[in-house]
Design a protein around this nucleic acid. Structure first.
Length: 579
RNA sequence: GGUCCGUUAGCUCAGCUGGAUAGAGCGCUGCCCUCCGAAGGCAGAGGCCACACGUUCGAAUCGUGUACGGACCGCCA
């Protein structure tokens, strides 16, 4: 049940009726007619802009349309009052029973809020995709949480979602990894080694060196790189992916697909993807202009193989081959995205860090060309996370060893807090993450505030149960009456917005909207709770009156269900009690 | 030089498909606990949405430009 969608259906059918009876001219487009909550609650429960949107194409005065529409809408038994206001808004006040129905719908239907807007379309969400050269750090964490919540959101909104991780196991950085592991391997054999520039000195490779020793013994000792490099690449990459998988698991993230870059090499798949582009005349040999603003002495013109991405909206053409004939990083990326297109996805989403900003246009250009414009690619960039401790910025440096891993964060504040906090900001806005603040138990802290609402509701349910009041959902539904207090109606109205918020969030690929909605809903719950201090009639448990208690508990139980559903999308566990 | 993102209350941020007096939290002022957890709530003061132009009956929202801030910008992945 989505009251906004339901009433919109009513509005549209009324408009069609008006067309039939000649009030409105034929052929009007109703697509822009919206039914929304009014900005000011005093204006009513719902408002529609129908009259204003249609006034111009119908060549009529907005108020004339609104008056006629109001008459038709008022005939529906859900509508108690329809009045024209302002420049031509039509404000609707709904029958009190509608709000009871909302609560009833939440309690009766586990899928309240779920949507079929996705219509089962296949969408691929690629996220994290960190290089397999070490543990995930805090910068990856935001992309991981964002991508995962977005995937869950789309799933909730009716899409068929695949969560995918692209393993960059084909490039030179894996050679560096392999050499670093080799050093640790020598170390495991008791040799003194030095980690020079261009190797990864991290402690996390010590175990990998030991494991390699356990596996191959002294086979690689004293051998040339050519003898062991390929083997150790594979061994080390697998070890790193195990590490990364366990990091992700600590955050509650599980991928559906791990796609290996290496699998594209030597199989003709890169060549195949580029042949697709070549067939469209989009591949040529050429020399790029020097980038503006760069010093000319740093620049030498070189002939390379280029992709004519400017034909698909990019600013300059992009190299797919280096001047020595080897692939650029872009080439396997093209092949990878071509693979996604060929796997039949209807939509692609890439979640990248902000440092990939320059990559967006070329990737979109490639997908546009490879799918003949049929598969949209949305690229979401996650901005930096600024770390704080006690309000002081906390500088992260790999060299100084103050490198904060995903694991560090999760161990300090827990997965729930990590996830929620990372989602309380738009993905493209920088995020402040203060280790102390996020653990604070006060309303400054949205995680706590929402969890506290859950805890309070559960506290009531426990108390009711102790007093012998049945609180199973069937009983609560049966106890629902239509005489809600205005303060209770406010909460029910907020609940009614849930399906709408889900659709907006899914349409814009913005899971942070869910977090903000939950905060608002929690605020309404806290407000209602406190009203019980002044007005005993608003307390949830009414001594000696089980039926009234159950009717009131039904409402807050519904709040709990919706908060749980929302937290579920964010990947956060609702708290039964605070500790 | 270019691209992308941002600019909304003292601070940190929401704001949908353009619409009626622009919303929250913190901070500030004043209230509310013999009572389901006050780890909370209520009320007040405080922004005309960086600036300009444009589209529109109507712009914080769309477009263009300027200023300021951030990220990025050839064969590094």
């Amino acid at each position: 049940m989505n009251i906004f969608a339901d009433i919109r259906v009513l509005v549209i059918s009324s408009l069609e009726e008006m067309t039939r009876t000649g009030v409105l001219p034929e052929g009007l487009d109703f697509a822009n007619v919206a039914v929304e909550p009014p900005r000011d609650a005093a204006h009513g429960d719902l408002a529609t802009n129908a009259a204003m949107v249609l006034a111009k194409p119908a060549k009529m005065k907005p108020r004339d349309i609104a008056d006629a529409l109001a008459g038709l809408l008022a005939a529906d038994d859900r509508v108690e009052l329809a009045e024209v206001a302002g420049p031509g808004f039509l404000n609707l006040r709904l029958n009190a029973q509608v709000w009871t129905q909302v609560v009833d719908a939440v309690l009766s239907n586990a899928s309240f809020g779920q949507s079929n807007m996705g219509a089962g379309k296949k969408v691929n969400v690629e996220y994290v995709s960190a290089n397999p050269t070490g543990p995930l750090h805090v910068g990856h964490t935001r992309g991981a949480v964002f991508g995962d919540a977005l995937a869950s959101l789309l799933d909730y909104a009716g899409y068929d979602v695949t969560r995918e991780y692209y393993i960059n196991d084909g490039g030179a950085q894996v050679d560096v990894l392999a050499r670093s592991v080799y050093l640790r391997y020598l170390e495991a054999h008791g040799q003194e080694v030095a980690f020079e520039d261009g190797t990864y000195p991290g402690d996390y490779l010590i175990d990998v060196g030991e494991a390699l020793k356990a596996k191959v013994g002294d086979e690689y000792l004293g051998k040339e790189e050519a003898h062991w490099l390929a083997d150790i690449r594979v061994f080390a990459t697998e070890a790193m992916m195990d590490l990364i998988r366990s990091d992700l698991a600590a955050l509650g993230i599980e991928m559906d697909v791990f796609f290996s870059e290496k699998s594209l090499y030597g199989t003709g798949r890169i060549e195949g993807a580029l042949a697709q582009l070549d067939d469209q005349g989009l591949i040529y040999e050429g020399v790029l202009e020097p980038p503006k603003g760069k010093k000319p002495e740093d620049w030498e013109p070189r002939e390379q193989t280029l992709f004519k991405s400017t034909d698909h909206g990019d600013d300059v053409d992009r190299p797919v081959k280096k001047s020595d004939g080897s692939w650029t990083y872009f080439a396997p990326d093209i092949a990878y995205h071509f693979d996604k297109v060929e796997r039949g996805f209807d939509e692609l989403i890439d979640v990248f860090g902000a440092d990939h900003g320059g990559y967006v246009k070329r990737m979109k250009a490639a997908v546009s060309a490879l799918s003949a414009g049929k598969v949209p690619l949305d690229i979401k960039l996650t901005q930096l996370v600024k770390l704080f401790k006690n309000g002081e910025p906390f500088k992260m440096s790999k060299r100084a060893g103050t490198f904060v891993t995903l694991r560090d964060v999760v161990e300090q504040v827990g997965p729930d807090v990590t996830r929620f906090v990372m989602l309380t900001r738009k993905n493209d806005a920088p995020l402040d993450f203060d280790f102390d603040k996020v653990l604070e138990q006060s309303k400054d802290n949205p995680v706590f505030y929402v969890q506290y609402a859950c805890a309070r509701i559960n506290s009531v349910l426990r108390k009711a149960d102790e007093q012998g009041i049945a609180v199973d959902d069937a009983t609560l539904r049966a106890a629902l009456g239509t005489d809600l207090h205005e303060a209770e109606v406010a909460v029910a109205k907020k609940l009614s917005e849930w399906p709408r918020q889900v659709e907006i969030a899914a349409r814009t690929n913005e899971p942070h909207r869910i977090a903000f909605y939950l905060y608002d809903l929690a605020a309404d719950l806290h407000a209602l709770w406190n009203r019980g201090n002044d007005d005993l009639a608003l307390r949830f448990i009414q001594d000696g009156d089980a039926a009234t208690s159950q009717a009131k508990i039904a409402l807050i139980r519904a709040v709990f269900i919706v908060i749980s559903a929302g937290l579920g999308i964010l990947g956060v566990t609702p708290a039964k009690e605070m500790r």
